[in-house]
């Protein structure tokens, strides 16, 4: 432990003290400060509007399988936020993901077709056969998570990650296994284009980008939430393909 490290340690401890000190400040009336843990001001928080699923009109109670035609019909409130209220944000995020994947491909382009050290010398029997059973299950589970994203915990990102995991396992298990990049491309492009075209249709039909132009249906039905599940499916596909691509690139590098 040399001097450098001690200095860094001291500085960081000081920084930590200062950060933690911020949580101890008791706000005066009208002042904005950090909450005490679990002491959120429920009445005044923005999230309440999202929970009520009515940002613009008066608050009504939302009841399971009964309330109809809410602003956002998804039972999972987080999904409402991600795919409806903040859908544009999500579009940007997907773009970041896309750019990262593209950048990675660009960086690792030269070595794309060379043999990789990461892949096992010999295929492991257990892995190989385990994957055979696990792979469709993982795909199924991922698809479920994506499709039921607006009703239950989970969503497109999680589901996409699960699907990508399935492909990761597949890649790990076998030397011969090669992903068909054309199919990946097609899926990715289709997903991205549909996301944007849904948004554009909203612009055309309702006058604003990514508007929920479909009927939102009854809360907690499968077919509910208007465009939310559709967008979620496109995002899910895109994330799955993107992550698979990243994994593929890194494995081949």
């Amino acid at each position: 432990m040399n001097f450098r490290k001690i200095l860094a340690l001291i500085t960081i401890i000081l920084l930590g003290i200062f950060i933690l000190q911020a949580f101890l400040i008791i706000p005066e009336k009208g002042e904005i400060a950090l909450n005490n843990f679990g002491k959120a001001d429920i009445e005044n928080r923005t999230a309440q509007l999202y929970i009520d699923k009515s940002v613009n009109s008066t608050n009504e109670q939302v009841i399971y399988k009964e309330s109809k035609d809410k602003e956002s019909g998804s039972a999972n409130i987080v999904t409402s936020i991600v795919a409806n209220y903040r859908a544009l944000d999500t579009l940007g995020e997907v773009t970041v993901l896309f750019l990262a994947a593209t950048g990675l491909s660009a960086i690792l382009y030269n070595k794309k077709h060379a043999k990789s050290n990461f892949i096992l010398k010999e295929d492991s029997f257990i892995l190989k056969n385990g994957i055979k059973i696990l792979f469709p299950l993982l795909i199924l589970a991922g698809s479920y998570i994506i499709i039921y994203g607006h009703l239950s915990p989970g969503g497109s990102f999680q589901g996409g990650a699960v699907i990508a995991t399935a492909f990761l396992l597949k890649l790990l298990s076998s030397k011969e296994y090669e992903l068909d990049e054309n199919i990946l491309k097609i899926i990715e492009v289709t997903a991205g284009v549909s996301f944007v075209s849904i948004g554009l249709y909203g612009l055309y039909a309702e006058g604003s980008f990514l508007t929920n132009f479909l009927e939102t249906g009854t809360i907690a039905n499968l077919f509910s939430g208007g465009i939310v599940p559709i967008i979620y499916i496109t995002i899910g596909l895109k994330v799955a393909v993107e992550l698979t691509n990243i994994i593929n690139d890194l494995m081949k590098a």
Partner: peptide
């Protein structure tokens, strides 16, 4: 913050969904 068959209306004590949505984004990035 999910309305399910047991928690069947929005008058429950939900945690704040906005940070969760943000964090979801943040993780992916």
């Amino acid at each position: 913050p999910i309305i399910t068959s047991t928690i069947n209306n929005n008058s429950y004590n939900f945690v704040d969904p906005i940070p969760q949505a943000l964090v979801l984004t943040s993780i992916v990035i």
